[in-house]
Design a protein around this nucleic acid. Structure first.
Length: 339
DNA sequence: CTTAATATTGCGATTACCTCA
DNA sequence: ACTGAGGTAATCGCAATATTA
């Protein structure tokens, strides 16, 4: 028996599944798994499983329009985190939450009352950028911080005693690594607040990718740099994919166990049939037969070998008759010379 | 219309920092 | 106080795609 499990590239994820469905009806299980994450197709397939929407409304997202022609098996994702689900009216996203529009500007009234922890302040040019794409009535332009829960490190809390120094540090942290290296500074990891993370999480549920407008609006609303929002979404997608991979592996593991068990049962059945032949040598008038399974077509075939015939003769079991044959599953062998 | 250069974006791999047991 | 593990923000390099001259 062949177990076709492909953990790499899976160009034809269901090819072997078709075979198995047309043969052994006694085997009630069949699988079609395409866990090919190492190729572009695999990535797209994975994205399909993740139900990542491929936006097409924005020109800049056109590169993601391609979809796999062979969608692999859909595995239900376990809930990643028990994040409370908000309704659209409760969620003051900086873009309309009509599940499809990504215009970037919000309708929003509720967001004006929601403030967020600030690890660092966006640079003024980024604020200008965000304002440039926001309508004059957007919540982002009217965003105000109303509370601040700083969850920085001990060092951060110490430095927060000196506001000027903290601003300077935040500004430094907002630079890219190249800038940091140029300044001889090590990058500083900034922890997002619970509120920021929760809001990003909710945003991710709405759109797991962001167009530039959404990114800017979200960054402004959360008082983060657009780059931070972008990185967060990238990492969040990576986490989702990793979780899905774990689910896939777990599923494959269960399938393997199932197949192993089925194989064990088949072996047991075969032994019982052989024992039956031994105890009732003239019951079926069978030749000395070796049951084999064609690896290509997965059909059971028989071969009559001299050694088997000798063994049968020694036990006094079977006369040396070339035919008839015994087909345990009422199947004709695909080829007479099965290997 | 074709093509090369450039810009943009997302992803995988990895690093670095932070928190916690 | 120290330490290792785990989580995650951030970085880097690459590939695919879009845009533009």
């Amino acid at each position: 028996m062949e177990l076709g499990l492909s953990l790499g590239e899976a160009p034809k994820p269901f090819a072997f599944m078709e075979k198995s469905t047309k043969t052994n009806k006694g085997l009630e299980f069949c699988m079609g798994l395409g866990v090919g994450l190492n190729t572009r197709e695999g990535k797209e397939a994975a994205d399909q499983r993740h139900s990542i929407p491929r936006r097409s409304e924005d020109g800049e997202e056109g590169r993601d329009k391609t979809v796999s022609a062979n969608p692999p098996v859909q595995l239900d994702l376990l809930p990643l985190a028990p994040v409370p689900r908000y309704t659209s009216s409760q969620l003051p996203f900086p873009w309309p939450v009509d599940h499809g529009n990504s215009d970037g500007c919000s309708s929003g009234q509720a967001a004006t009352t929601r403030g967020f922890d600030v690890n660092l302040l966006p640079s003024t040019d980024e604020i200008d950028d965000a304002a440039a794409v926001d309508s004059p009535n957007s919540i982002a332009s009217s965003f105000q911080m109303e509370f601040s829960i700083y969850r920085g490190s001990k060092r951060d809390r110490e430095s927060s005693a000196a506001p000027a120094a903290n601003d300077c540090e935040a500004e430094r942290a907002s630079s890219r690594a190249s800038d940091e290296e140029e300044n001889g500074l090590t990058r500083k990891k900034l922890r997002l607040s619970k509120e920021q993370s929760a809001f990003l999480e909710e945003s991710f549920k709405e759109h797991n990718t962001l167009n530039p407008k959404q990114k800017l609006a979200l960054a402004k609303q959360l008082n983060l740099r657009p780059r931070q929002v972008e990185v967060w979404f990238q990492n969040r997608r990576a986490r989702t994919k990793l979780k899905q991979t774990e689910v896939d592996c777990e599923y494959l593991k269960r399938c393997c166990e199932t197949l192993t068990e089925e194989n064990r049962k088949l072996h047991k059945e075969l032994q019982e049939l052989r024992a039956l032949k031994t105890s009732h040598p003239f019951y079926m008038q069978l030749p000395a037969t070796t049951l084999t399974m064609c690896p290509s077509c997965e059909r059971v075939a028989t071969t009559t070998t001299p050694a088997a015939a000798d063994g049968a003769a020694k036990t006094g079991g079977f006369p040396a008759v070339s035919k008839p044959r015994f087909y345990p599953f009422s199947q004709q062998p695909h080829q007479s010379t099965a290997s």
